[in-house]
Write a protein that binds this DNA or RNA. Structure first.
Length: 515
RNA sequence: GCCUGGGUAGUAUAGUCCGGUCAAGUAUACGGGCCUCUCGAGCCCGUGACCCGGGUUCAAAUCCCGGCCCAGGCACCA
């Protein structure tokens, strides 16, 4: 009774009874915590994707975090492609990220590629070489690795500046080939932090780059490129996952020597989802073994897969606000959380339609109505659809299996039906033109004409114990009302008593978004 | 193996810096109820957690020590 009152009245009534109750009940509006050291109008964040694979939900969430903060503090956001490994960067991935960010509603203010700034990197490198803070090294890879592991310097470390510059020029002028020399940072060879043990800053890679082609062969490594770029872009806050933790010190030191300003780092554990691999390598392997269909397989959490599945960008944004925290504890989100947020987004804007899974034929003896109009949504004004009624009806097999002669049930919005008899797979009944009775089972139905559709039901690819889930993609077939022909790819509807479903690229295929 | 970080209900978290107001809050999930011509939404009620062991203290989720477990790093990848 009380619940039937408008919300305001409930609040008023409760306030009279006990004002503290309201305070306790009020839902905490969770949002991202304030950014340390943030100054209104002076926050600069960045999106630093490596264009070497498809964008997934981890990129999406990290991207949203950077975007949301720049919005909150009215700052600036960079989109900067970290493309300094020409062997890994591929043109198609640049656009895949741009598209993904756009789809999420992320607006960036400036864009560049690290590969645009090669001359800048070279200039900064020369400065380090001249001041003796970097040196040319011709150790082969295994040797360097072993010495770094043991924390001992190599002979090249103490060579003359002029010699270093000579090698550097040799690298730039193609006289030194791949693997023959590198430029190393003069750090601290015996530091506990292995990143500081004279890491490589530049190496020769004889491979074309998707953007610069064969113009450059001396490429900066990640640490150098990112340090310089974050410095010259004026980045104030670096929000990234914690695999970079041990590099903070190195990157700050590089910038310090170059006279560039250091940002503040906020690092957090990767965003993972239960039962779904995120590692490119693992996904590629599943694709090659034909376990999944591709990068947009609906069981995956790539942005294209989420889109296919019917996860709305607004939902991902809200999800980030509500559930992301910058803890370094391992996190593995459950689909329940994302689904719940997505459902709230979908609910008011999603048409309700009838889909009958595993249909059973229903023949009604005394039925004469030839058509009916049904609202597309129970509360919202989404309009209505007209449904033609033919000779036969179809109802879900699950419902029919519990019927027997004499059972009374209701065809939603239409009429009540009393089962006369069941013959094999067909139910025969008589209709009673009356309204719904309390407690009666209400069943969705489809008549003729109708459209045969199949619904893919994605589940976790891997079970808790790590084994492959052979039920990870189930298929349900049935009949849907003709209205589904109006739907386009990525349109989501709610099939009543079944779940929210999103139309896939093929017109008769839907994907179960969630219940 | 060596270095870093972590461990609050099934999940994600608040609280931990500055010990008491925390017999631990929120969301989701789950159970029950109300409402509804959906098994959806909404509303109400309920179940459910401070990794373990010591110590300090009048008092510890919060501080100290030890253990266990988890994640990340240890590339001429990012």
């Amino acid at each position: 009774m009380v619940n039937a009152l408008p919300y305001d009245e409930i609040v008023n009534a409760l306030t009279e009874i006990d004002p503290t109750l309201i305070e306790r009940r009020r839902e905490e509006k969770r949002d991202l915590p304030p950014l340390p050291g943030a100054v209104e109008g002076a926050v600069v964040t960045r999106l630093p994707p490596e264009p070497s694979g498809f964008m997934h939900i981890g990129h999406a969430m990290s991207g949203l975090v950077n975007y949301l903060y720049k919005e909150r503090y009215r700052g600036e956001l960079w989109l900067r492609f970290e493309d300094t490994d020409p062997r890994k960067a591929k043109l198609e991935y640049y656009e895949n990220f741009r598209e993904g960010y756009r789809w999420l509603g992320i607006e960036w203010d400036r864009e560049k590629n690290n590969s645009d700034d090669m001359e800048v990197f070279y200039a900064y490198c020369k400065r380090l070489l001249e001041s003796g803070e970097a040196y040319a090294c011709s150790c082969d890879q295994p040797t360097m690795r072993a010495m770094r592991a043991r924390g001992i310097p190599c002979v090249h470390r103490s060579l003359d500046v002029s010699l270093n510059l000579e090698v550097w020029d040799g690298m730039l002028e193609n006289r030194i080939g791949e693997g023959e020399a590198t430029i190393r940072f003069k750090g601290d060879v015996s530091s506990q932090n292995t990143a500081l043990r004279d890491p490589v800053l530049f190496r020769v890679i004889e491979s074309d780059h998707p953007i610069t082609g064969d113009r450059y062969r001396v490429w900066p490594t990640y640490d150098f490129a990112v340090s310089v770029e974050d410095g010259i872009c004026g980045v104030t806050h670096v929000l990234r996952t914690s695999e970079f933790r041990l590099r903070d010190e190195l990157q700050n030191e590089i910038r310090r020597r170059l006279g560039l300003r250091n940002p503040l780092f906020i690092e957090y554990a990767r965003f993972e989802f239960e039962g779904v691999p995120v590692a490119k390598r693992e996904i590629r392997d599943l694709i090659e073994r034909r376990v999944i269909s591709g990068w947009d397989d609906v069981r995956l959490v790539t942005v294209s897969a989420l889109k296919r599945r019917g996860i709305r960008p607004e939902a991902i944004k809200e999800f980030v606000r509500r559930y992301v925290a910058f803890t370094e504890a391992k996190k593995e989100f459950s689909w329940d959380l994302l689904n719940a947020v997505n459902r709230r987004v979908l609910d008011p804007m999603t048409p309700r339609l009838f889909f009958v899974p595993n249909p059973v034929t229903l023949v009604i003896r005394n039925f004469e109505v030839r058509g009916i109009s049904i609202p597309l949504h129970p509360m919202e004004r989404l309009g209505e659809r007209h449904v033609q009624l033919g000779e036969r009806f179809y109802i879900p097999g699950d419902d029919a299996s519990s019927f027997e002669a004499g059972t009374k049930f209701r065809l939603k919005y239409l009429c009540n039906v009393i089962v006369d008899r069941i013959e094999g797979p067909t139910v025969y009944g008589s209709c009673v033109m009356e309204g719904p009775e309390p407690g009666i089972r209400i069943v969705q139905w489809v008549s003729e004409p109708n459209i045969k559709v199949r619904v893919l039901i994605p589940g976790p690819l891997f079970l808790k114990d790590g084994t492959f889930n052979d039920q990870s993609l189930r298929v349900v077939e049935g009949f849907a009302e003709p209205y589904v022909a109006n739907l386009r790819e990525h349109d989501t509807v709610q099939f009543e008593r079944f779940g929210y479903c999103t139309r896939d690229s093929h017109e008769n295929t839907f994907i179960l978004t969630h219940e």
